Amino acid sequence: MTRDTRTRLLEASAQLFREQGYAGTGLKQITAAGGAPWGSLYHFFPGGKEQLGVEAVAHSGSRYLRLFDLVFDRAEDDVVRSVRDFFQLSAEALHKSDWADGCPIATVALEVASTSEPLRHACVEVFASWRESIARRLAGAGIPEARAADLATYVLCAFEGAIVLSRTDRDTRPLRVTADIVAGTLGAELPG
């Protein structure tokens, strides 16, 4: 059993949680999707599904954070363009997946916030890392730190809400409309 097996289990879990939720995903389904033997699941995750869920949330959260950083870096530190591009990429991914590929963190968070403290805490940590990254980028663009932190919360809330509506409506319009409003709001906050 290699480290690759562990990673495959984390990625399979994240994908299945994103598509069908935490409760709707079985351990046998995860091992099959990860191409891993059954025994490897408890070898790598002796705490069972909850431990796997916590680690899958953290794994997904860091992957999405790297994607955000990549999008931001490509936009050459233009926060308005970065946010617009990230919303657009998300709209494309959601449409391409036939509306199944929502946010892996929000999907789990909505389901377990009242039932699993370890999973809720894992989601809190991921959302906090995303907000901190957004706030840091906004502050780097000249927005005062306290205001940048508030705006980061706004950006994340708008994004997550737009994902939910687009996925539910099976239409990218909520993401596109929200991207325009968020971009306009951020543009108005930038100095000069």
Rank of each mutant, 00 (worst) to 15 (best):
M1H: 03
T2Y: 09
R3W: 12
T5G: 08
T5I: 14
T7N: 11
R8V: 04
L10Q: 06
E11I: 00
S13V: 04
S13A: 15
A14H: 03
L16W: 12
L16D: 04
F17M: 11
Y22Q: 01
Y22M: 00
G24T: 02
G26L: 02
K28C: 03
Q29G: 05
I30V: 10
A32D: 05
A32V: 13
A32L: 09
A33N: 11
G35K: 00
P37L: 08
W38H: 12
G39K: 02
S40F: 07
F44W: 15
G47D: 09
Q51W: 10
Q51I: 03
G53Q: 08
V54P: 08
E55K: 04
A56V: 07
A56S: 15
A58E: 10
H59R: 15
H59M: 05
S60P: 00
S60A: 15
G61R: 07
S62K: 11
R63F: 02
L65T: 15
R66D: 15
R66P: 01
F68M: 09
L70K: 14
R74S: 05
D78I: 03
R81K: 13
R84F: 09
R84L: 03
D85I: 05
D85C: 07
F87G: 10
Q88F: 04
Q88S: 14
S90L: 10
S90I: 12
A91F: 01
L94W: 02
S97I: 02
D98G: 05
D101E: 14
G102Y: 08
G102C: 11
P104K: 12
I105V: 15
T107V: 12
T107G: 05
V108C: 01
L110H: 00
V112T: 10
A113M: 08
S114L: 11
S116Y: 03
E117P: 11
E117N: 09
E117A: 14
P118E: 04
C123E: 06
V124A: 09
V124C: 08
F127P: 01
F127I: 02
S129G: 09
R131Y: 05
R131S: 07
E132I: 06
I134N: 07
R137Y: 07
A139W: 09
G140F: 06
A141Y: 06
I143D: 08
I143H: 04
A146R: 09
A148S: 13
A148K: 04
A148L: 07
D150E: 15
D150C: 06
L151Y: 13
A152I: 02
T153E: 14
Y154W: 07
Y154D: 09
V155A: 10
V155H: 10
A158Y: 01
G161W: 03
A162K: 11
L165D: 12
L165S: 01
D169S: 05
D169L: 11
D169G: 07
R173C: 01
R176D: 15
V177W: 11
A179Q: 08
A183T: 11
A183Q: 02
G184M: 04
G184D: 11
L186Y: 10
A188Q: 03
A188E: 01
E189L: 04
L190Q: 08
G192R: 15
